[in-house]
């Protein structure tokens, strides 16, 4: 039996799909989409699910995550119903829907989201004060502020929390999709997803302008390299020169990507950037903050400026903490949701 819910569309509209009720279901969006393949059609079908309020079908559709929002549908929609914006809004709603106890809803509330980040920042600051030592003011040594062990343990703790959050949310998404009889695609499928869609992001190429594909790649590989650098540091227990090089390259990649998307969102010209909610900005702001403070920290360490080093170090840690803790509940989660959707839709 299919349940119908007239309220659902009103809820989704709050997440950014302001004009979608103008849709007269002509199918131009589907036919113009460069990513649609037979059997997995969107956005029109998704819009129908939303307008009828068939929650199970809508959030059980991997199609939501097969869209990369190039905006072709939005610019050719004869009703200017912004199907691309709808898909984005539905993904925002899905992030809330897939999170444990719908906790992620708070990141899409106008007051709740900034408040959550303030609380997270306060917690991080408090932890630093609690576990921090007396910094050495004569020479810049970050380990005098927080000992190697403290950083180590904090890293493990944050890692576990984030991983747990991501796994729980992934399981929620899996449940939604399998309720809609979507099955996982086997091990070879998973490997194909990881190589073609995570490492290379082949679908992104089909859909996007070259520059957006490259900068997104830059952002993605920037993150990956920075994690790698942290991993090397973690294993070696010192600031190894390899980690410094990898971190430097990763940081540059991250900043390039971050600045590009800030510029696009500020410009608001392309459909994907036409509407940005608080999280879109917060996400970019945190990325840039982590990147910039990382570089300044390195600068302060090399030039031996203790005060600047400690300030940058604290800001860097707090921003990274905010970014990571929130990751499974914000748009950052697309990093795991998209691969799962691709795997389960066998579109590789």
């Amino acid at each position: 039996m299919t349940e119908v819910n007239p309220i659902l569309i009103e809820e989704i509209k709050r997440y950014g799909a302001f004009d979608v009720t103008a849709c007269y279901s002509c199918g131009v969006c589907t036919a113009i989409c460069p990513l649609v393949e037979e059997g997995r059609e969107f956005p029109r079908r998704m819009i129908r699910y939303a307008l009828l309020g068939i929650r199970r079908k809508l959030f059980g559709s991997p199609e939501l995550w097969l869209c990369y929002y190039c905006g072709e549908c939005t610019s050719s929609c004869p009703r200017q119903a912004d199907p691309g914006g709808f898909m984005m809004a539905a993904r925002r709603y899905a992030i809330a829907e897939y999170s444990f106890g719908r906790i992620a809803k708070i990141f899409y509330s106008k007051i709740g989201a900034p408040l959550t980040f303030i609380v997270l920042t306060l917690i991080a600051g408090l932890l630093m004060i609690l576990f921090g030592g007396n910094p050495n003011m004569s020479s810049a040594d970050i380990f005098s502020l927080l000992s190697r062990e403290t950083i180590h343990h904090a890293g493990i703790a944050v890692g576990i929390i984030v991983l747990l959050g991501a796994l729980v949310n992934l399981a929620m998404m899996y449940r939604h999709l399998s309720q809609n009889s979507v099955k996982v695609g086997g091990l070879s499928g998973l490997i194909r997803v990881l190589i073609k869609e995570v490492a290379y992001q082949g679908r992104y190429v089909k859909c996007e302008s070259r520059s957006r594909f490259l900068t997104h790649m830059s952002l993605f590989w920037g993150f990956l390299l920075l994690f790698l650098a942290s991993g090397v540091n973690f294993v070696s227990g010192t600031r190894s020169p390899i980690a410094i090089v990898i971190g430097f390259v990763g940081g540059i990649f991250l900043l390039v990507g971050g600045i590009y998307f800030v510029a696009k969102r500020a410009e608001r010209r392309e459909p994907f950037a036409s509407y940005s909610d608080f999280m879109d900005w917060a996400f970019l702001a945190l990325i840039l903050l982590v990147g910039v403070t990382g570089f300044l920290l390195d600068f302060a360490l090399v030039t031996n400026l203790p005060l600047m080093a400690y300030t940058m170090f604290s800001m860097h840690l707090i921003a990274a903490f905010d970014l990571l803790i929130a990751a499974p509940f914000t748009k950052f989660a697309h990093a795991v949701y998209r691969p799962l959707a691709l795997w389960m839709s066998e579109r590789v």
Binding site: S25, G27, V28, T30, A31, G39
Partner: peptide, 13 residues
């Protein structure tokens, strides 16, 4: 001609 065949399951056609 590219279209979505709405009466046949919304197939991209």
């Amino acid at each position: 001609l590219w279209y979505e065949d709405i009466e046949n399951g919304g197939r991209i056609s």
